[in-house]
Design a binder for these strands. Structure first.
Lengths: 241, 241
DNA sequence: ATATCCAAACTGGTTAACCAATTTACCAAA
DNA sequence: TTTGGTAAATTGGTTAACCAGTTTGGATAT
């Protein structure tokens, strides 16, 4: 277990080091957007690392849109300026794990917007999918079983209905971390369970009726509860009041 | 060029197909969170694809938090339930490129929140970084040079100051696409340039004075201009009025 | 002098062999 | 039966060889 962390850190450090070296190379050689990076083999030799390490570093920069690779041709610098590139690489290097508070803050921000858009743009298929997710959630909830997954699936179904590809992707990205953070089998009981179900049903009905403002209000209500749970007294296994 | 697209599509299709097969395998074998996936070699043979293809698919699922790999041990299913996993994989498979409108919508949503948080939490170092970005932006702007990069660096500096790791990461993710979409060398002239600079300065000063509400207002002003530019008449190379 | 063409070198992508660490299975000793 | 240790098998990660296009540079014909 300890080793795993070490390995990950090591790998990360190696990857980041290569990224840093690539940045230095671009700066030193004054490469501009569209210019070709040295070949992977050359870089691996110059940096004294394996070619696959270089490749993984390049792929990461490619993912962030800073580089792009053309097969049988080379790797090129994207059409963003040198200054912007430097700043972004610095940010990429310095970004670490997400703290739970920032995750929840972001989720709330996203979903208050998403639910409005979903209310306006949802199709019948979206509605049916949301309804099914809600149904699965209710079953678990009533039986007193853990239902974090079903809860978040409900919200993901809404995100899918909002027809904003970017926001949907971002929700997909941050959702797993939230699920894991919640994973300790938290359940609700009695009145609270019923209240939670009602909140979800209210959201669903607002979307069904295509009332964006009401949907946002109901989502806000849903989140005030969540906010209390996050920032309130120490987290409890069972919410009773 | 055509080939590049084909190659990418092909790759993507292969990767998605493998992801789909992995999902089916998990469902068929009823694997639960924490269970170990078959070894990469086994999967590559079973699916009739190369091991590196399996690896890239696994890495993608790892990025989305659905799987995690332990060196010399195996690949395991993350601590999210089977139902949630299935829904998320379906979403991942269906998500494509981001349309420009959704990118801008998301950016605006994020930044209106970010700028408030930045005003509250910025350190002196953050402020200095923002100031420098603003300075670089002004120089280009006054000289009538393209300054999209400097503009977005200014905004990224603000994002970095908001101290929300998740939002900062998301900004880093969506920013390059925006830059590229804007890249056609757009410049402002005369009064418009001065107005743009003033908008930025207003935002900077609000952050400096730690006035979140004012910062948000100024950012909103900045974005109404942007919104017009996006949704208004056909995009122009030079904004004059 | 210029345009055309072809082969050799170079490219990123792919495949297969290799490595070190971990897990597993088994056997001997208590 | 339980325990300890050891060696073989299995793992994800790494490296090196290979492949199919692309680019390039110069030889050749016009």
């Amino acid at each position: 277990m300890k080793l795993e962390i070490l390995t990950k850190n090591e790998n990360r450090e190696i990857e980041d080091e290569i990224i840093s070296k690539i940045r230095d190379l671009i700066n030193y050689k004054n490469l501009e957007p569209g210019d070709k990076l040295p070949a992977e083999r050359v870089l691996s030799e110059k940096f004294g690392v394996s070619r696959s390490s270089v490749r993984s570093a390049i792929q990461k920069l490619e993912f962030y849109g800073i580089l792009y690779s053309k097969p049988q041709s080379g790797t090129f610098i994207s059409n963003i300026g040198q200054i912007a590139m430097n700043g972004m690489i610095e940010d990429i290097l310095s970004l670490g794990e997400h703290d739970f508070k920032s995750l929840v803050e972001t989720r709330i921000l996203l979903e208050l917007k998403i639910v409005k858009m979903a209310a306006l743009r949802r199709t019948e298929e979206d509605l049916e999918r949301i309804r099914q997710a809600l149904s699965a959630y209710k079953v678990k909830m009533i039986n007193g079983e853990p239902c974090v997954e079903e809860d978040l699936l409900f919200h993901l179904a809404i995100a899918s209905a909002c027809k904003n590809t970017t926001m949907n992707t971002l929700m997909l990205l941050i959702t797993p971390e939230i699920i894991v953070a919640y994973q300790e089998d938290r359940v609700c009981e009695g009145d609270v369970a019923l209240a939670q179900i009602k909140q979800h049903e209210d959201i669903y009905m607002a979307i069904r009726d295509q009332d964006p403002q009401l949907a946002k209000e109901k989502m806000k209500l849903h989140f005030t509860k969540l906010y209390d749970y996050i920032y309130g007294e120490n987290r409890k296994k069972v919410i009773k009041g």
